[in-house]
Design a protein around this nucleic acid. Structure first.
Lengths: 331, 331
DNA sequence: CCCAGTATGGCAACCGGTTGCCATGAGTTG
DNA sequence: CAACTCATGGCAACCGGTTGCCATACTGGG
C-alpha cells in the first residue's frame, strides 16, 4: 500500500512529523495550526515555522472524518456545456465562495443513473447538493434524507428548491404573439424527463385558450442544436405562423434550418426560445426568448443549502426578451 | 459534534451496525461488501441483505483514508462557462468514466490565487489534476510534486501536458488571408497571463514576416464578448483589412460591434477567431476560426493521468475552418 | 479414526487528523 | 510565604473504514 502524497515516492508529511520535529505533542501541533488561542503565541509560531519548513499540508480527508463536514458543495447538472446552466454555475460558485465553501461540479449527461452515481460517489465528500435533477421523485426524496439537497427547476415538496414562473412567462409569450397578430402557434417539446417541459406545455395551452389561439404540440425533441432541423421541418409542415421552442438550443437549431431552407424569420415564421442562453443575442436573427434569472437562482440555492435562507419553495419571475426572431405574420 | 449523515437527525448507519445486526465481525462485514471471495457465499449474501435493509452507505471519506485513493479526478479551468473548454470537459469526463474515475470540476475565474485555493482544497480528495492553468510556473511545478498533474494548453517540462500546434494554425491563418489578398493584419491580444497568447503572437509575427504582411498588435483585451467593442474600434482606427482575435469570444464581440457600427464583414474587415466555440458557427456572419480538438485533448490528458498513456508533451494539430467572416478586402 | 490442509472469521492495528479531560507549572492574591 | 487560578500542553479515545495475521472449524485423505 502506498501512503505517499501521490508521487509514488516519499511519504507525505503528517502532523506527527511536525509535532516530533517541533518537540511538542500532536495535540499541541494540531491546536497550534487550527485552533489558535488554545496554545501560547510562542509555541504557535514555532509549530507554524516547522510546518512550513517541512512543507506540511493537512490531509483533508482525515481532517473531515471526525466532523463529517468538508465545506464543499456538490453541484450536479445534466450538461455543464449547456449555456442554460451557466448562470446557475456562476451564481452558486460566487455565493458559495462568499460563505467559505468550495463548489465541485459534476455532469450527469442527462442520464438519471449517472446522476445517481455521481451523487453516490460525492455524497461523503460534500456537505450538500444543488441538483438540476433528472432522476425520479422517489430517488430524489431518498437522497434528500441522506444529505441536504436543493433543487433547481423542479418542485418536489418537501425538498426545497427554486423554479421559474412558467405560467407568467408563458403568458408573456402568448400576449406578445397575440399582439403581433398570430393565431396559430406550435410548441416544440423538450425531453419527456423534463419537469419544466410539462409545466411550459400546460401553461402555454392555458393562455392560448384564453386568447383563442390554436396551439399544436410537436415532438418531443432532444434539447440540442442538432434537433433543430427536424423540429423546423415539422413546424413548416403545419399551419403555425409562430413556434415556441422548449429551449434556446432547439430554437437556434430551428433558425439555422430555416435559414438553410430559405424561410424568412420572422416574416414567414416567428421563433421564440426558452432560456436566453449565451448565443441567443447574436444568432441570426437574434432570438426572442425568456430570460430566466439563473444566476440569482444559483445564489439562492446555495443560501438555502448553507442555511442563510430558510429552505423553501421559491418561484422566480422570468421576463420575456423580444428580439428579432418574432414579428407580425406575413398575411 | 454532529456525526450524522447530515440531516441533523439520526446518525448514519455504519459498517459496525451492519456487522452487529448480521452477527459477524466488522472485518467480515467489510470483506463481504468490498472484497468478495474472502468470505463464504452464504455469509456474503446475508451481510448484503442486512446492509441494504439498514440502508447502509459506506463513508467514502473513511474508506479512502487508508489508501489515499478516491478514484476522483479534479479538473480546474479558468472559466467553466467559456465554450472553449467544453470539449475539454466532455473529453475528460468521458475518458475518466471509462477508466472508472469520477471527475469534479472547479472554476478558477481566471484568478491564479483562486486556482491555487481550489487545488489546495481538493488535493486530498482527488487522485490527480487536469489543469488549464493560470498560475505561474513555480507554483505549478510545486503542485506537481504533491499530486499528479497534467496541463491543458501550457508547456512546462517536466509536467506532462497537451498543447495545440500554434505555429501551424498561425501559418494556416496567414496563408488564408494572403490568398484572399490581405497585406495589413491586426492581432487582438488576449490576457497577459495566457501562455497561448504569447505563442500565437510569436507564430503570427513569423508567418506574416515570411509573406511580407504587416502585423499590428492591439490590446491586451479581456477574452470576453464585452471586450469586443473596444477591440473593434481599435482595429478600425488602423490600416488593417483583417483582424485575428485571441479567441472566438473576443472575435464575436468584435462582429457585434462592427454590425452596430455598420461596418460590413468581410467586405470592409475580415475577422478570424481562435478556438471554434459554441456559437462560432451561427453568429453573423459565421466566424472563420481555428478548430482546436479540445475533446481529444481532454481524453488524452485523462489517459496520461490514469497512466494509460505515458506522461509526455503532446502537440495536437488544429485546422482552420473558413466561414463567412473572411473574404477579399474591398479595394 | 486421526491428522493435515484449507476455508472462514475475528482481533487489533492503522490511516491522519481532532478534542475532552486531566496534570502541571507559572502567576496572582491574601 | 502559602494557597488558589488559570494558561498551557499531553494522553488517549474517536471518526469509519481496511487488512495482516492468527485461531478455529470443517473438510478430505491416508
Amino acid at each position: 500500500m502506498d501512503h505517499s502524497g501521490g508521487d509514488g515516492g516519499r511519504r507525505a508529511v503528517t502532523i506527527y512529523d511536525v509535532a516530533r520535529e517541533a518537540g511538542v505533542a500532536t495535540s499541541t501541533a494540531s491546536r497550534a495550526l487550527s485552533n489558535p488561542g488554545r496554545v501560547s503565541e510562542r509555541t504557535r509560531r514555532h509549530v507554524e515555522e516547522v510546518a512550513s519548513r517541512l512543507g506540511y499540508r493537512a490531509n483533508r480527508l482525515a481532517q473531515a472524518l471526525p466532523s463529517g463536514r468538508t465545506r464543499m458543495l456538490g453541484l450536479v447538472v445534466p450538461d455543464v456545456t449547456n449555456p442554460h446552466v451557466f448562470g446557475l454555475l456562476r451564481g452558486a460558485e460566487a455565493q458559495a465562495a462568499a460563505a467559505g465553501y468550495t463548489v465541485v461540479f459534476a455532469d450527469s449527461e442527462e442520464r438519471p443513473e449517472l446522476e445517481a452515481a455521481h451523487v453516490e460517489r460525492l455524497s461523503s465528500f460534500v456537505d450538500g447538493f444543488v441538483l438540476s435533477p433528472r432522476g425520479d421523485d422517489a430517488a430524489l426524496r431518498a437522497l434528500a434524507q441522506v444529505r441536504p439537497v436543493v433543487l433547481f427547476n423542479r418542485s418536489l415538496a418537501p425538498v426545497p428548491g427554486v423554479t421559474f414562473d412558467f405560467d407568467d412567462s408563458s403568458r408573456q409569450i402568448v400576449d406578445h404573439l397575440v399582439a403581433l397578430g398570430h393565431s396559430q402557434v406550435a410548441y416544440l417539446r423538450g425531453p419527456v424527463t423534463s419537469w419544466a417541459d410539462g409545466r411550459r406545455r400546460a401553461a402555454l395551452a392555458r393562455h392560448c385558450g384564453v386568447h383563442g389561439v390554436t396551439l399544436t404540440e410537436l415532438g418531443p425533441f432532444a434539447p440540442t442544436l442538432g434537433s433543430g432541423p427536424a423540429a423546423a421541418d415539422a413546424a413548416l409542415a403545419g399551419p403555425a405562423t409562430a413556434v415556441v421552442a422548449f429551449n434556446d438550443l432547439l430554437a437556434i437549431g430551428v433558425l439555422q434550418r430555416l435559414e438553410a431552407r430559405g424561410v424568412s424569420v420572422p416574416g414567414e415564421l416567428s421563433v421564440v426560445g426558452g432560456d436566453d442562453i449565451f448565443g441567443a443575442s447574436f444568432c441570426h436573427p437574434p432570438l426572442t426568448t425568456i430570460a430566466a434569472p439563473t444566476e440569482q437562482a444559483g445564489r439562492l440555492l446555495v443560501d438555502m443549502l448553507t442555511g442563510r435562507v430558510p429552505g423553501d419553495e421559491l418561484v422566480l419571475h422570468a421576463p420575456l426578451v423580444a428580439r428579432g426572431s418574432t414579428g407580425p405574420p406575413r398575411v
